[in-house]
Write a protein that binds this DNA or RNA. Structure first.
Lengths: 245, 245
DNA sequence: CCTGCGTCCTGATTTAGATCAGTCCAGCCC
DNA sequence: GGGCTGGACTGATCTAAATCAGGACGCAGG
């Protein structure tokens, strides 16, 4: 494959959509100049904040969520290395969601002006970013389908499979399983279930020798069985070769 | 307000984010050259299709949905005049969702090449489109929260209020109510509920003099009461004056 | 050392919403 | 007119998941 894979997983991801030139890679690299570190648990972005910075995640896991007036929390998505996060907080007047690191995180800060600058210098990059945002939207949509129309078991399995697929794309997972820093409470908030029920579902999955979720690890005991159970579409995140040359 | 409001509701929407120049308006207008008409019920875009066309909706209502292997349907979002639809079907190899007109629809067809062309000529437009896509994503997120963490009553009301807010922005609704071509079945598919249950919820809302859903119309009998019941954030779609000059 | 605290785990009970199985009514076609 | 069809509407029953109420383990901090 002739794609020059530069250092950042973000560049690699965009490169999977648009065949980027050296100049474009250079412009992309310039977006990574402000590297920052966040400890686990300290919100990077919060509802109502008007700081207007976004981040490209280099290492660690974060989650985006919203809190309802009643105190209930819904996690919208998790971000893993290579993901862009908080774009809406720079395009909108104020952030409409919270972003919390689940582990220690390193990320590059991107300001609105940096991004607009980069677009002006190379409009192809704008298309690539648009694609990345659309891909994120597609995942939120799949998450919506999950919560709206699948029962707790299918939902849990579909979610853990999707996470696995995403991690495989950045080399952090295999068909055997992956390291996963999520507690059952966090998982429950993402799945729209109670923690108690998530616990029962995980027990059933373990007893049926399908999946083991334990000690910060997800182990696929029967990958094919899981794919069938959750009606998981193996193709859906697949991206084989740039669409735009 | 000094924004030159050109004919299309789409241009008006983008103009609310970026202060567009005459040249930019002209480029935008050129995107509207292929006007097409679709009858109600005939899918404009369907899962797996690789035609790669998107549309800017000029009149009528459409819905985007996915069908699960079991036959269950989840409606992801409705689009109303001024909305961009099917962007993911031009950026991805194949469409990942279906789009069905709920009424007779007129729309402008946009090809991938048109869009990339327009971005090259004016990168500011790219930022504006990115903003529009992000706004759509924010709505999908709100929809996710709705389904994940609100009960049937709050969920229904929140949804109908949001639709109202969107329609007000394009002059198709007021605080009194709006014309709404949705059947209770369609509403159920959007809310992730059964049609039977939606019917019961609507009856309760009517009996409590909060909202009347009947004969293709939504009437807010007690707007403030509804906002309170659904914990609806009146500011969330609000956009007062362009952010980017 | 004991005191918390967080995570995992469980049985008993309750409830929101699904499913089943219809009725009623308006519009449409022959 | 009679026979359809599709939407709105309803009572009875069932069930998935929530909630309540706890126990057990590990480990960080005084």
């Amino acid at each position: 494959m002739p794609i020059p894979v530069q250092e950042s997983p973000f560049a690699r991801k965009l490169g999977a959509y648009v065949a980027l030139t050296d100049t474009e890679f250079a412009i992309l690299a310039a977006l990574h100049k402000r590297r920052r570190i966040f400890p686990a648990g300290q919100d990077m972005i919060y509802q109502g904040q008007s700081v207007r910075a976004a981040y490209i995640l280099a290492s660690g896991w974060v989650c985006s969520y919203k809190i309802l007036p009643g105190g209930a929390r819904q996690i919208v998505d998790f971000q893993i290395p290579g993901d862009f996060l908080g774009l809406r907080s720079i395009l909108f007047r104020a952030a409409d969601h919270n972003v919390e690191p689940l582990t220690r995180v390193t990320a590059s800060e991107v300001l609105a002006s940096d991004l607009i600058d980069a677009f002006t210098r190379t409009p192809r990059l704008a298309t690539a970013v648009l694609w990345a945002v659309s891909r994120d939207e597609a995942m939120v949509v799949e998450h919506l389908i999950n919560i709206g129309r699948r029962d707790a078991m299918q939902r849990t399995v579909h979610f853990l499979l999707e996470l696995g697929a995403r991690l495989m794309l950045v080399g952090l997972g295999t068909k055997e399983g992956y390291a996963c820093p999520l507690s059952q409470y966090v998982l429950a908030d993402a799945l729209g279930l109670s923690a108690v029920h998530v616990n029962r579902i995980l027990r059933q999955l373990r007893e049926r020798h399908l999946l083991t979720f334990r000690n910060g690890k997800v182990i696929f005991d029967d990958f094919d069985g899981l794919v069938e159970l959750a009606e998981f579409d193996l193709a859906y995140l697949d991206q084989s070769g740039p669409l735009l040359r």
